[in-house]
Design a protein around this nucleic acid. Structure first.
Length: 855
DNA sequence: GTAGGGTTAG
C-alpha cells in the first residue's frame, strides 16, 4: 500500500475551488477515498469522519460506501449504521454503492460481493432492483449455479415482480454459462419481450453453435413485430460466418442497409469477417473500400489478419499485423496461432517471444497456442517452461489448455507426465483421450495404445483413425483391417482420412485386392474422391502395379494438386516408363502447377530407370535454375543411380566427389551396386571404405562387397569380408517378400520354413530347379533357390489359378539369379509375374522382363 | 444484449 499522508496534512492542502479546476489530481474526494481505503482502525478513522461531515462529503455515495466497507471490514456494522442514521441517504443506496465499488475493483473477488449481500440480508436491509443488477453482474463474473438460483429466488420473493431488465439480465447470466434450458424458460415465460430479450436469446443460440435455431428465431422476431438492431445483426452475421452461409449473410447485409441500420461500426467487422470466411475476399475489401476514412479499429484489423490466416496467406496476414497500430493480446494471438495453423512453428515461437518483450501478458489461449507449437516441434524444454508459466499465473488448467498440455507431453513421448495431466484434468473430453492415445501410438506402445483405446469412454473419428494410423505405421496390416471392420460396426463412420490410411497400408505391402476393395467401398458409400483421396488411390494402384487403374483415377480429377501429379509421375517411374513420366511432367508444367522436391525425385528416378542421362541432367539442373529448389541428398542419389545404371561409373564417382552437400551412405551404396553390375571391384572397394567410415556396421555394404568378390572369384577376399562381418557382428538385412492371398498378406523370408504350406512350396521349388535344366553355380550365401521371392513365387504358383498374374513385393533389390529365374518361370508356367522392388517394378512375361536388363 | 484469437489423427 502506498504511504498516505496524515489526514491533517490532507485537509490543510485542500485547494480552493479555482485551483481544483486546474489541478484535478488533488481532488479532495480522491484524497478521502485513498485515505479511507487505507484506514485500518477506528482511531485512524475518527478525524476524517469529522471532516467528512463538515464538508458534507459524507453525502457522496462512494464515500459513504467506503465508510461502510471500513466498518464491515472491522466487523462493526452497528457503528456504521449509527453513522448512517445521521445522514439523509437511504441505507440501500449506500450498500449498493458499496456493491458497485466492489464490483469495479479489478483485483476484487466476486465472492466479496456476495459476502456483502449476505450482510445486507442479515441486517434486514431492503434490496432493490439496483442491488439485484449488481448481484447478477457478480454472478456473471464467477458463475455458480447455487448462487445464481439464490439470487433468482430472492428476486421473485422481493415483491417487485420481475422487471424486464432483470429478466433480460438473468437470461444473459445463464447464457454466459451456456445454460440453454434456463435461458429458454425465462424467454418463453416472459411475454413482454423487447429487442434485448430477443437478442439475448439469439446470441445464446449462436454461443452454443445452434446457428440455424438462431436464424429461425430471427424470423419469429420479425413476425412478432420487433425491430432488430445492430446487435441482432452482429449475432446473426457471425452465425452465417460460422455456417459459411454466404447467401444468408448477404441477405442480412441487405436487410441492415435497407432498414437504416448502422453498418459502419461493429457490424462492419462482422460483415467483413463473414465475407472472408465465406471465401469472398473481394466483397470484403469492397466493403472496406466503401468506408469513408482509414480505420484504426484493432478488432477490424484482427478480423482481417484472421481472414488471411484462414485462406493460408500468412504473408498478407503478417503484413497487416505489422501495420496494426494498437496491437492487443488478441491480435498477437491471432498472428501466433496463424503461424501454428500454417505449420510455421518456429515463427510462431519467435513472435511469442516478441510479444513477451513488448510486455503483453499472455492468457490461457495464447499459452495453449504456443504449447501446441512446442508440441509439434517436440520442444520439451520450452514446453515445460510454458507449463511453468501457466502455473505461475495461477491459471486453472481445464478444457483446451489441459488438452494442449497432454498433447505436448504425448508428442514428446513423456507418457507419465501426459497421464498425470489427464488424471488431474477436470473437464476431460474425447480430445484429451485422443491426445493420450496418440502418445502411446507414437511411442510405439501399440499394446498399451489398444488397451487405452478399448477403455476410452468416448471414441470419435480421430480416435479410430489414430489407432488405425498406428497399425499402418508399424505395418500391422491384419490388425489394421480387423480394426476397420470393427469400426464399420460402430457408430463412427470412416472418413476420407480413414480410407487414406487403409490405402497407404495397401500400397506399402502391395495388397492390390485389399486396395480394390477399399476403392469399391468408397464408390459404394458415395464418398467424394477429393484430391487427397485420389492421391492415395493413385499411389496405391501405382505401388500395386496397376498403372491403368491409377491413370483412370487420375484422369477423373479436374483440379489436380502437385501431390496428385507427383503420385502419377512416380507410378510411371516405378513402371519403368520414363517417357510417360516426362510427358506427364510437361503437362503439369503447362497446367501451371509448380513441381516440388518430391516431383523431382519421381522424375529423376524415372530417368534413372530408363537410363535417360541427358534428360536426368536437364531436370536436375532445372529444379535449381527454374524452380529455385535446392537438390537434397535424394536427388543426388538419383543422379548417381542414373550414371551407375548406364555404366558411367567414373562420372558417377566424380559427381559424388563434387557435390556440394555431404554424400551419405546411400549415395555410395548406389555406386557400389552399379560396380557390382559392371564388375568394377576397385571402385567398389573405394565406395565400401567411404560407407564404412560413416557407418561402420552397414550390413548391405558388407553383403555387396562379398558378392562382388564372389563374382570376381576372389574367394580369399570374400572370406575376409565374411570374417569381418562376424567379428563386428554385422547383421545381414533379411530379404523379405510379400504376397497377397485370400484376404491376407503372406510374408516370406529367405530359407523360411514357417508357412503351413512349406512342404508343397519346397517341392515346387525343386520342380522349378528342374525346369532350369542345369545345375546351380556355387552359391556364396543362401542358395538363390531359397531367396524369399522364390518362396513367394512358388507359393503363388501353388495357390492361385493358372494364368493369373502373381504379384510380389520385395523389400530388397533382387539378385541377378532370381531375375533370370523369374524370366524362366514366367515362360515355363505361362504366368505374368509382377515383382516390386523398393522403387520399381519388374514385369516378367513370356520369358522376358519389362526392365530390359536395367535392374 | 454485440464483433476479432484456442486443443486431437494426416
Amino acid at each position: 500500500m502506498a504511504s498516505i499522508a496524515h489526514p491533517s496534512t490532507i485537509f490543510s492542502s485542500i485547494p480552493s475551488p479555482t485551483v481544483k479546476a486546474t489541478r484535478s489530481i488533488s481532488d479532495p474526494t480522491q484524497h478521502c477515498i485513498s485515505f479511507l481505503k487505507s484506514c485500518s482502525n477506528t482511531k485512524e478513522f475518527l478525524p476524517i469522519h469529522a471532516h467528512l461531515i463538515t464538508t458534507n462529503l459524507i453525502q457522496d455515495p462512494l464515500i459513504a460506501s467506503l465508510i461502510l466497507q471500513f466498518f464491515v471490514s472491522i466487523e462493526n456494522v452497528d457503528y456504521a449504521r449509527l453513522i448512517f442514521s445521521q445522514q439523509c441517504m437511504p441505507e440501500t443506496k449506500v450498500w449498493n454503492a458499496l456493491l458497485e465499488n466492489q464490483l469495479q475493483d479489478q483485483d476484487g473477488w466476486p465472492k466479496q460481493v456476495f459476502l456483502t449481500y449476505y450482510q445486507m440480508v442479515s441486517q434486514g436491509i431492503m434490496l432493490d432492483i439496483t442491488t439485484f443488477h449488481f448481484l447478477l453482474h457478480a454472478c456473471c463474473k464467477d458463475f455458480d449455479i447455487l448462487q445464481a438460483s439464490e439470487v433468482q429466488g430472492r428476486i421473485l420473493k422481493s415483491g417487485f415482480g420481475i422487471s424486464r431488465s432483470l429478466n433480460n439480465n438473468l437470461m444473459g447470466m445463464y447464457s454466459k454459462d451456456g445454460r440453454l434450458k434456463e435461458v429458454r424458460q425465462l424467454f418463453e415465460n416472459f411475454p413482454d419481450r423487447d429487442v434485448i430479450t430477443w437478442n439475448t436469446m439469439i446470441s445464446c443460440y449462436v454461443r452454443l453453435g445452434l446457428f440455424t435455431e438462431a436464424l429461425d428465431l430471427f424470423g419469429k422476431m420479425l413476425a412478432d413485430g420487433i425491430k432488430p438492431d445492430e446487435i441482432t445483426m452482429i449475432s446473426l452475421v457471425s452465425a452465417c460466418s460460422k455456417l459459411r452461409d454466404l447467401k444468408m449473410g448477404e441477405s442480412l447485409h441487405l436487410y441492415a442497409e435497407e432498414n437504416g441500420l448502422d453498418t459502419s461500426g461493429s457490424l462492419l467487422n462482422c460483415l467483413v469477417d463473414m465475407y472472408i470466411k465465406c471465401g469472398e475476399m473481394r466483397k470484403a475489401f469492397k466493403l472496406l473500400g466503401s468506408c469513408e476514412s482509414e480505420t484504426t479499429d484493432v478488432v477490424l484489423w484482427t478480423t482481417l489478419i484472421s481472414g488471411f490466416v484462414k485462406v493460408g496467406d500468412l504473408t498478407a496476414a503478417r503484413h497487416l499485423f505489422n501495420q496494426t497500430r494498437k496491437k492487443n493480446l488478441i491480435s498477437w494471438t491471432t498472428m501466433i496461432s496463424g503461424y501454428v495453423q500454417g505449420g510455421f512453428y518456429s515463427k510462431s515461437l519467435e513472435l511469442f517471444r516478441e510479444m513477451r518483450l513488448e510486455n503483453v501478458r499472455p492468457d490461457e489461449v495464447a499459452l495453449l497456442t504456443v504449447i501446441s507449437a512446442c508440441a509439434h516441434m517436440e520442444y520439451i524444454i520450452l514446453g515445460r517452461s510454458i507449463h511453468g508459466l501457466v502455473v505461475k499465473y495461477g491459471m486453472i488448467i481445464d478444457g483446451f489448455l489441459g488438452n494442449s498440455l497432454i498433447d505436448l507431453y504425448s508428442k514428446c513421448k513423456l507418457l507419465d507426465l501426459a497421464n498425470k495431466v489427464l488424471e488431474q484434468l477436470p473437464g476431460k473430453n474425447v480430445v484429451s483421450w485422443n491426445s493420450m492415445l496418440d502418445g502411446y501410438c507414437r511411442s510405439g506402445e501399440i499394446e498399451k495404445a489398444r488397451i487405452f483405446f478399448e477403455k476410452m469412454p468416448e471414441k470419435d473419428e480421430v480416435s479410430w483413425n489414430t489407432m488405425m494410423n498406428c497399425y499402418t505405421k508399424f505395418h500391422l496390416f491384419e490388425e489394421l483391417f480387423d480394426l476397420f471392420r470393427e469400426m464399420q460396426g460402430s457408430k463412427v463412420k470412416p472418413n476420407s482420412l480413414t480410407l487414406v490410411s487403409l490405402l497407404s497400408s495397401c500400397a506399402s505391402v502391395g495388397a492390390l485386392n485389399h486396395g480394390i476393395w477399399v476403392h469399391a467401398h468408397i464408390k459404394r458409400n458415395q464418398i467424394a474422391i477429393d484430391n487427397k483421396l485420389a492421391t492415395a488411390l493413385v499411389n496405391m494402384y501405382g505401388k500395386c502395379g496397376s498403372i491403368h487403374k491409377a491413370e483412370e483415377v487420375f484422369s477423373e480429377i479436374k483440379a489436380k494438386t502437385v501431390f496428385l501429379w507427383t503420385a502419377m509421375i512416380a507410378a510411371h517411374a516405378m513402371e519403368g516408363q520414363p517417357h510417360k513420366a516426362i510427358a506427364l511432367y510437361m503437362e503439369m508444367e503447362v497446367s501451371g502447377i509448380k513441381p516440388d522436391h518430391i516431383t523431382f525425385i519421381a522424375l529423376l528416378s524415372a530417368c534413372s530407370h530408363g537410363g535417360l542421362v541427358d534428360e536426368g541432367y536437364r531436370y536436375f539442373n532445372k529444379m535449381r535454375t527454374v524452380y529455385n529448389l535446392k537438390p537434397a541428398v535424394q536427388h543426388y542419389g538419383c543422379m548417381v543411380d542414373l550414371l551407375g545404371r548406364v555404366g558411367r561409373l567414373e562420372d558417377a564417382k566424380e559427381f559424388i566427389e563434387t557435390m556440394p552437400i555431404e554424400p551419405d551412405a546411400s549415395i555410395w551404396s548406389s555406386l557400389m551396386r552399379a560396380c557390382a553390375t559392371y564388375h568394377k571391384v576397385k571402385l567398389a572397394e573405394h565406395a565400401f571404405e567411404c560407407i564404412i567410415k560413416m557407418d561402420p556396421s552397414n550390413a548391405s555394404a558388407y553383403v555387396l562387397l562379398s558378392n562382388i568378390y564372389a563374382k570376381a572369384k576372389r574367394w580369399e577376399d570374400m572370406s575376409w569380408v565374411r570374417r569381418k562381418m562376424k567379428e563386428i557382428g554385422v547383421q545381414k538385412q533379411l530379404g523379405c517378400s510379400l504376397i497377397e492371398h485370400n484376404g491376407t498378406v503372406h510374408k516370406f523370408t529367405s530359407g523360411d520354413f514357417s508357412d503351413t504350406k512349406y512342404a508343397e512350396i519346397y517341392s515346387m521349388l525343386d520342380e522349378i530347379e528342374g525346369q532350369k535344366g542345369r545345375l546351380h553355380e556355387e552359391e556364396e550365401a543362401a542358395p538363390s533357390s531359397q531367396h524369399s521371392e522364390k518362396l513367394a513365387v512358388a507359393f503363388g504358383l501353388i495357390t492361385t489359378p493358372t494364368r493369373t498374374p502373381i504379384r510380389i513385393v520385395n523389400n530388397l533389390r533382387m539378385c541377378s539369379d532370381c531375375h533370370s529365374d523369374m524370366k524362366m518361370i514366367s515362360r515355363a508356367y505361362d504366368r505374368e509375374i509382377v515383382l516390386r522392388e523398393n522403387f520399381r517394378f519388374h514385369r516378367f512375361q513370356h520369358g522376358s522382363c519389362s526392365c530390359n536388363g536395367h535392374w
